[in-house]
Protein backbone atom coordinates (compact mmCIF):
# COMPACT_ATOMS: atom_id res chain seq x y z
CA UNK A 1 0.00 0.00 0.00
CA UNK A 2 3.00 2.26 0.04
CA UNK A 3 2.02 3.71 -3.32
CA UNK A 4 -1.19 5.20 -1.98
CA UNK A 5 0.81 8.32 -1.34
CA UNK A 6 0.95 8.84 -5.10
CA UNK A 7 -2.79 9.07 -5.38
CA UNK A 8 -5.05 11.86 -4.34
CA UNK A 9 -8.38 10.53 -5.61
CA UNK A 10 -9.78 7.33 -4.18
CA UNK A 11 -13.52 7.29 -4.49
CA UNK A 12 -15.60 7.04 -7.63
CA UNK A 13 -17.85 9.81 -6.38
CA UNK A 14 -14.84 12.13 -6.31
CA UNK A 15 -14.11 11.61 -9.99
CA UNK A 16 -14.54 14.69 -12.16
CA UNK A 17 -18.01 14.84 -13.68
CA UNK A 18 -16.79 16.34 -16.94
CA UNK A 19 -16.63 14.05 -19.92
CA UNK A 20 -14.68 14.59 -23.11
CA UNK A 21 -16.40 11.73 -24.88
CA UNK A 22 -20.15 11.37 -24.72
CA UNK A 23 -22.06 8.13 -24.29
CA UNK A 24 -23.71 6.63 -27.35
CA UNK A 25 -20.52 5.96 -29.28
CA UNK A 26 -20.16 2.76 -31.25
CA UNK A 27 -17.43 0.91 -29.37
CA UNK A 28 -17.76 -2.85 -28.86
CA UNK A 29 -19.15 -4.23 -25.65
CA UNK A 30 -16.44 -4.44 -23.01
CA UNK A 31 -14.05 -2.16 -24.92
CA UNK A 32 -11.43 -1.12 -22.39
CA UNK A 33 -9.92 1.31 -24.87
CA UNK A 34 -12.90 3.64 -24.91
CA UNK A 35 -12.99 3.36 -21.13
CA UNK A 36 -9.40 4.55 -21.07
CA UNK A 37 -10.29 7.39 -23.45
CA UNK A 38 -13.07 8.39 -21.09
CA UNK A 39 -10.76 8.36 -18.08
CA UNK A 40 -8.13 10.39 -19.92
CA UNK A 41 -10.83 12.90 -20.84
CA UNK A 42 -11.94 13.14 -17.23
CA UNK A 43 -8.39 13.68 -16.07
CA UNK A 44 -7.69 16.41 -18.63
CA UNK A 45 -10.96 18.32 -18.40
CA UNK A 46 -12.63 20.48 -21.00
CA UNK A 47 -9.70 22.78 -21.81
CA UNK A 48 -8.29 20.13 -24.07
CA UNK A 49 -7.82 19.72 -27.81
CA UNK A 50 -7.60 16.18 -29.13
CA UNK A 51 -5.71 15.09 -32.26
CA UNK A 52 -6.84 11.57 -33.00
CA UNK A 53 -5.27 9.02 -35.32
CA UNK A 54 -7.39 6.91 -37.63
CA UNK A 55 -8.51 3.77 -35.87
CA UNK A 56 -11.20 2.33 -33.63
CA UNK A 57 -11.51 5.41 -31.45
CA UNK A 58 -11.91 7.66 -34.47
CA UNK A 59 -14.44 5.41 -36.18
CA UNK A 60 -16.60 4.79 -33.13
CA UNK A 61 -16.80 8.46 -32.21
CA UNK A 62 -17.16 10.51 -35.39
CA UNK A 63 -19.51 9.22 -38.08
CA UNK A 64 -20.75 12.26 -39.99
CA UNK A 65 -22.95 14.09 -39.10
CA UNK A 66 -22.62 13.02 -35.47
CA UNK A 67 -19.81 13.25 -32.95
CA UNK A 68 -19.16 11.94 -29.47
CA UNK A 69 -16.65 14.65 -28.72
CA UNK A 70 -17.38 17.40 -26.25
CA UNK A 71 -13.93 18.88 -26.63
CA UNK A 72 -12.42 20.22 -29.86
CA UNK A 73 -11.25 17.20 -31.78
CA UNK A 74 -9.36 16.78 -35.05
CA UNK A 75 -8.66 13.71 -37.10
CA UNK A 76 -6.47 14.03 -40.17
CA UNK A 77 -4.98 10.62 -40.94
CA UNK A 78 -3.58 7.43 -39.48
CA UNK A 79 0.14 8.03 -39.00
CA UNK A 80 0.23 11.69 -38.10
CA UNK A 81 -1.62 12.31 -34.83
CA UNK A 82 1.62 13.47 -33.19
CA UNK A 83 2.35 15.83 -36.09
CA UNK A 84 -1.15 17.26 -36.10
CA UNK A 85 -0.92 17.74 -32.34
CA UNK A 86 2.45 19.48 -32.87
CA UNK A 87 0.69 21.88 -35.18
CA UNK A 88 -2.20 22.46 -32.79
CA UNK A 89 0.22 23.13 -29.95
CA UNK A 90 2.36 25.48 -32.04
CA UNK A 91 -0.72 27.21 -33.45
CA UNK A 92 -2.29 27.84 -30.05
CA UNK A 93 1.04 29.02 -28.68
CA UNK A 94 1.68 31.57 -31.41
CA UNK A 95 -1.89 32.88 -31.35
CA UNK A 96 -1.71 33.38 -27.58
CA UNK A 97 1.69 35.08 -27.96
CA UNK A 98 0.33 37.41 -30.59
CA UNK A 99 -2.73 38.15 -28.46
CA UNK A 100 -5.20 36.77 -30.97
CA UNK A 101 -6.73 34.25 -28.56
CA UNK A 102 -6.99 34.51 -24.76
CA UNK A 103 -4.02 33.16 -22.81
CA UNK A 104 -4.88 30.02 -20.88
CA UNK A 105 -3.60 26.51 -20.37
CA UNK A 106 -4.99 24.24 -23.06
CA UNK A 107 -3.98 20.57 -22.97
CA UNK A 108 -3.06 19.19 -26.37
CA UNK A 109 -3.66 15.46 -26.48
CA UNK A 110 -2.58 13.24 -29.35
CA UNK A 111 -3.99 9.75 -29.35
CA UNK A 112 -3.55 6.66 -31.45
CA UNK A 113 -3.64 2.92 -31.27
CA UNK A 114 -0.62 0.66 -31.17
CA UNK A 115 -0.44 0.51 -34.97
CA UNK A 116 -0.75 4.28 -35.27
CA UNK A 117 1.94 4.69 -32.64
CA UNK A 118 4.54 1.96 -32.77
CA UNK A 119 4.26 1.17 -36.50
CA UNK A 120 3.04 3.72 -39.02
CA UNK A 121 3.06 6.73 -36.69
CA UNK A 122 6.42 6.12 -35.04
CA UNK A 123 8.29 8.64 -37.17
CA UNK A 124 5.81 11.45 -36.62
CA UNK A 125 5.78 10.68 -32.90
CA UNK A 126 9.56 10.62 -32.68
CA UNK A 127 9.72 13.96 -34.48
CA UNK A 128 7.18 15.55 -32.17
CA UNK A 129 8.90 14.21 -29.04
CA UNK A 130 12.30 15.37 -30.28
CA UNK A 131 11.02 18.86 -31.11
CA UNK A 132 9.77 19.20 -27.55
CA UNK A 133 6.19 20.26 -28.16
CA UNK A 134 4.21 20.72 -24.99
CA UNK A 135 1.73 17.93 -25.53
CA UNK A 136 0.64 14.56 -24.26
CA UNK A 137 0.63 11.48 -26.45
CA UNK A 138 -1.50 8.58 -25.31
CA UNK A 139 -1.10 5.25 -27.04
CA UNK A 140 -4.11 3.00 -26.55
CA UNK A 141 -2.49 -0.35 -27.09
CA UNK A 142 -4.88 -3.18 -27.88
CA UNK A 143 -2.05 -5.17 -29.41
CA UNK A 144 -3.21 -5.44 -33.02
CA UNK A 145 -4.94 -3.58 -35.87
CA UNK A 146 -8.40 -4.15 -34.43
CA UNK A 147 -10.20 -1.60 -36.57
CA UNK A 148 -9.27 -3.37 -39.81
CA UNK A 149 -9.97 -6.81 -38.39
CA UNK A 150 -7.33 -7.96 -35.90
CA UNK A 151 -4.13 -7.89 -37.97
CA UNK A 152 -0.81 -8.14 -36.15
CA UNK A 153 1.21 -5.05 -35.31
CA UNK A 154 4.67 -4.68 -33.82
CA UNK A 155 2.86 -4.39 -30.51
CA UNK A 156 1.18 -7.80 -30.77
CA UNK A 157 2.68 -10.11 -28.14
CA UNK A 158 4.55 -13.29 -28.95
CA UNK A 159 2.23 -16.22 -29.48
CA UNK A 160 -0.94 -14.22 -30.10
CA UNK A 161 -3.04 -15.37 -33.02
CA UNK A 162 -4.24 -12.55 -35.26
CA UNK A 163 -5.62 -12.61 -38.78
CA UNK A 164 -2.16 -11.96 -40.22
CA UNK A 165 -0.28 -13.95 -37.63
CA UNK A 166 -2.59 -16.93 -37.49
CA UNK A 167 -1.75 -19.96 -35.42
CA UNK A 168 -1.02 -22.57 -38.07
CA UNK A 169 0.54 -25.96 -38.34
CA UNK A 170 4.07 -24.59 -38.41
CA UNK A 171 3.73 -21.15 -36.82
CA UNK A 172 2.41 -20.46 -33.32
CA UNK A 173 0.77 -17.12 -34.13
CA UNK A 174 2.91 -14.00 -33.68
CA UNK A 175 6.57 -15.03 -33.78
CA UNK A 176 8.08 -11.69 -32.71
CA UNK A 177 8.17 -10.07 -29.29
CA UNK A 178 6.16 -6.98 -28.48
CA UNK A 179 7.92 -3.75 -29.34
CA UNK A 180 8.74 -1.84 -26.19
CA UNK A 181 7.20 1.48 -27.12
CA UNK A 182 7.46 3.16 -23.68
CA UNK A 183 11.22 2.55 -23.75
CA UNK A 184 11.41 4.17 -27.18
CA UNK A 185 9.64 7.19 -25.72
CA UNK A 186 12.06 7.19 -22.76
CA UNK A 187 14.98 7.21 -25.20
CA UNK A 188 13.81 10.64 -26.40
CA UNK A 189 14.69 12.04 -22.96
CA UNK A 190 11.26 13.56 -22.51
CA UNK A 191 10.15 14.67 -19.05
CA UNK A 192 7.44 12.08 -18.49
CA UNK A 193 6.67 8.54 -19.67
CA UNK A 194 4.25 6.14 -18.03
CA UNK A 195 2.38 2.93 -18.61
CA UNK A 196 -1.21 2.62 -17.48
CA UNK A 197 -4.28 0.47 -17.77
CA UNK A 198 -7.96 1.32 -17.26
CA UNK A 199 -8.17 -1.64 -14.89
CA UNK A 200 -6.32 0.74 -12.56
CA UNK A 201 -8.42 3.85 -13.23
CA UNK A 202 -7.08 6.15 -10.52
CA UNK A 203 -3.50 5.34 -11.39
CA UNK A 204 -4.27 6.07 -15.04
CA UNK A 205 -5.90 9.39 -14.29
CA UNK A 206 -3.13 10.48 -11.94
CA UNK A 207 -0.59 9.76 -14.61
CA UNK A 208 -2.51 11.67 -17.23
CA UNK A 209 -2.79 14.66 -14.92
CA UNK A 210 0.90 14.52 -14.18
CA UNK A 211 1.69 14.17 -17.87
CA UNK A 212 -0.42 17.22 -18.70
CA UNK A 213 1.41 19.27 -16.09
CA UNK A 214 4.95 18.71 -17.29
CA UNK A 215 6.51 21.29 -19.54
CA UNK A 216 7.24 19.44 -22.75
CA UNK A 217 6.22 16.18 -24.30
CA UNK A 218 4.75 13.36 -22.23
CA UNK A 219 3.93 9.84 -23.31
CA UNK A 220 1.47 7.46 -21.67
CA UNK A 221 1.16 3.91 -22.94
CA UNK A 222 -2.21 2.39 -22.01
CA UNK A 223 -2.85 -1.32 -22.28
CA UNK A 224 -6.39 -1.44 -23.64
CA UNK A 225 -8.02 -4.83 -23.49
CA UNK A 226 -9.98 -5.64 -26.65
CA UNK A 227 -12.45 -8.47 -26.04
CA UNK A 228 -13.22 -8.70 -29.76
CA UNK A 229 -9.63 -9.09 -30.85
CA UNK A 230 -8.39 -11.01 -27.86
CA UNK A 231 -11.22 -13.52 -28.03
CA UNK A 232 -12.27 -12.77 -24.50
CA UNK A 233 -15.73 -12.44 -22.91
CA UNK A 234 -16.47 -8.70 -22.57
CA UNK A 235 -17.03 -9.01 -18.83
CA UNK A 236 -13.40 -10.08 -18.39
CA UNK A 237 -11.86 -6.88 -19.84
CA UNK A 238 -11.03 -5.34 -16.51
CA UNK A 239 -9.88 -8.68 -15.11
CA UNK A 240 -7.57 -9.24 -18.07
CA UNK A 241 -5.99 -5.82 -17.55
CA UNK A 242 -5.36 -6.65 -13.89
CA UNK A 243 -3.87 -10.02 -14.80
CA UNK A 244 -1.55 -8.35 -17.33
CA UNK A 245 -0.17 -6.30 -14.46
CA UNK A 246 -0.19 -9.05 -11.85
CA UNK A 247 1.71 -11.46 -14.11
CA UNK A 248 4.29 -8.79 -14.93
CA UNK A 249 3.38 -8.93 -18.62
CA UNK A 250 2.41 -5.25 -18.54
CA UNK A 251 4.00 -3.62 -15.50
CA UNK A 252 2.69 -0.23 -14.47
CA UNK A 253 5.48 2.27 -14.02
CA UNK A 254 6.45 5.82 -14.70
CA UNK A 255 9.66 7.46 -15.81
CA UNK A 256 9.95 11.00 -14.56
CA UNK A 257 12.98 12.89 -15.87
CA UNK A 258 14.58 9.53 -16.56
CA UNK A 259 13.85 8.08 -13.11
CA UNK A 260 11.92 4.82 -13.11
CA UNK A 261 9.29 4.12 -10.48
CA UNK A 262 6.91 1.17 -10.19
CA UNK A 263 3.32 2.30 -9.76
CA UNK A 264 1.90 -1.05 -8.74
CA UNK A 265 4.30 -3.35 -7.00
CA UNK A 266 3.56 -7.03 -7.32
CA UNK A 267 5.47 -8.87 -4.57
CA UNK A 268 5.04 -12.23 -6.28
CA UNK A 269 4.15 -12.32 -9.95
CA UNK A 270 1.40 -14.66 -10.97
CA UNK A 271 2.26 -17.19 -13.67
CA UNK A 272 1.69 -15.80 -17.18
CA UNK A 273 -0.63 -18.71 -17.86
CA UNK A 274 -3.27 -17.08 -15.64
CA UNK A 275 -3.39 -14.23 -18.14
CA UNK A 276 -2.98 -16.26 -21.31
CA UNK A 277 -5.55 -18.95 -20.61
CA UNK A 278 -8.57 -16.66 -20.48
CA UNK A 279 -7.89 -15.35 -24.01
CA UNK A 280 -8.82 -17.15 -27.22
CA UNK A 281 -5.89 -15.58 -29.07
CA UNK A 282 -3.50 -17.70 -26.97
CA UNK A 283 -5.55 -20.87 -26.81
CA UNK A 284 -3.26 -22.77 -29.21
CA UNK A 285 -0.17 -22.23 -27.06
CA UNK A 286 1.63 -25.38 -25.93
CA UNK A 287 3.27 -25.68 -22.50
CA UNK A 288 6.73 -25.12 -23.97
CA UNK A 289 5.60 -21.88 -25.64
CA UNK A 290 4.00 -20.72 -22.42
CA UNK A 291 7.28 -21.48 -20.67
CA UNK A 292 9.12 -19.47 -23.30
CA UNK A 293 6.81 -16.51 -22.67
CA UNK A 294 7.22 -16.94 -18.90
CA UNK A 295 11.01 -16.76 -19.23
CA UNK A 296 10.88 -13.66 -21.33
CA UNK A 297 8.38 -11.91 -19.03
CA UNK A 298 10.45 -12.70 -15.96
CA UNK A 299 13.60 -11.44 -17.65
CA UNK A 300 11.96 -8.21 -18.84
CA UNK A 301 10.38 -7.62 -15.46
CA UNK A 302 13.70 -8.05 -13.69
CA UNK A 303 15.28 -5.66 -16.16
CA UNK A 304 12.64 -3.09 -15.23
CA UNK A 305 13.18 -3.71 -11.51
CA UNK A 306 16.89 -3.12 -12.04
CA UNK A 307 16.12 0.23 -13.64
CA UNK A 308 13.85 1.13 -10.73
CA UNK A 309 16.57 0.17 -8.24
CA UNK A 310 19.16 2.10 -10.19
CA UNK A 311 16.89 5.17 -10.19
CA UNK A 312 16.40 4.86 -6.41
CA UNK A 313 20.14 4.64 -5.86
CA UNK A 314 20.79 7.64 -8.07
CA UNK A 315 18.30 9.90 -6.32
Amino acid sequence: MKNLGNLNVYAVRLLPKTEAIAPGHRACQGCAEVLAVRLVGKALGRDTVVACATGCMEIISSPLPTTSWRVPWIHVAFENAAAVASGVEAGLKVLMRKGRIPKKKINVLAMGGDGGTSDIGLQALSGALERGHNFLYVCYDNEAYMNTGIQRSSSTPFGAATTTSPAGKVKPGQVTWKKNMPEIAVAHNIPYVATACPSYPFDLMEKVKKAAKVDGPAYVHVLSVCPTGWRLPPDLSIRAGRLAVETGIFPLYEVEEGRYKLSVEVPKLRPVEDYLKIQGRFRHLTPDLIEKIQERVTKDYNKLLAKVRFSEEMS
Binding site: V49, A77, A83, G87, E89, G91, A124
Partner: peptide, 27 residues
Protein backbone atom coordinates in the same frame (compact mmCIF):
# COMPACT_ATOMS: atom_id res chain seq x y z
CA UNK B 1 6.77 36.40 -35.22
CA UNK B 2 5.88 32.87 -36.22
CA UNK B 3 6.34 29.31 -35.06
CA UNK B 4 8.87 27.65 -37.36
CA UNK B 5 8.43 23.90 -37.02
CA UNK B 6 11.31 21.98 -38.59
CA UNK B 7 9.56 18.65 -39.04
CA UNK B 8 11.05 15.24 -39.70
CA UNK B 9 9.31 14.69 -43.06
CA UNK B 10 7.04 16.35 -45.58
CA UNK B 11 4.24 14.10 -44.45
CA UNK B 12 4.55 15.69 -41.04
CA UNK B 13 5.02 19.13 -42.62
CA UNK B 14 1.55 19.01 -44.12
CA UNK B 15 0.16 17.32 -41.00
CA UNK B 16 1.57 20.04 -38.77
CA UNK B 17 0.13 22.63 -41.17
CA UNK B 18 -3.29 21.01 -40.76
CA UNK B 19 -2.88 21.34 -37.01
CA UNK B 20 -1.73 24.97 -37.02
CA UNK B 21 -4.36 26.00 -39.55
CA UNK B 22 -7.12 24.21 -37.61
CA UNK B 23 -5.92 26.02 -34.48
CA UNK B 24 -6.53 29.27 -36.33
CA UNK B 25 -3.00 30.21 -37.38
CA UNK B 26 -2.06 31.57 -40.80
CA UNK B 27 0.02 28.74 -42.17
Amino acid sequence: DAEFIPVESEHSAMSVCCGTSAAGART
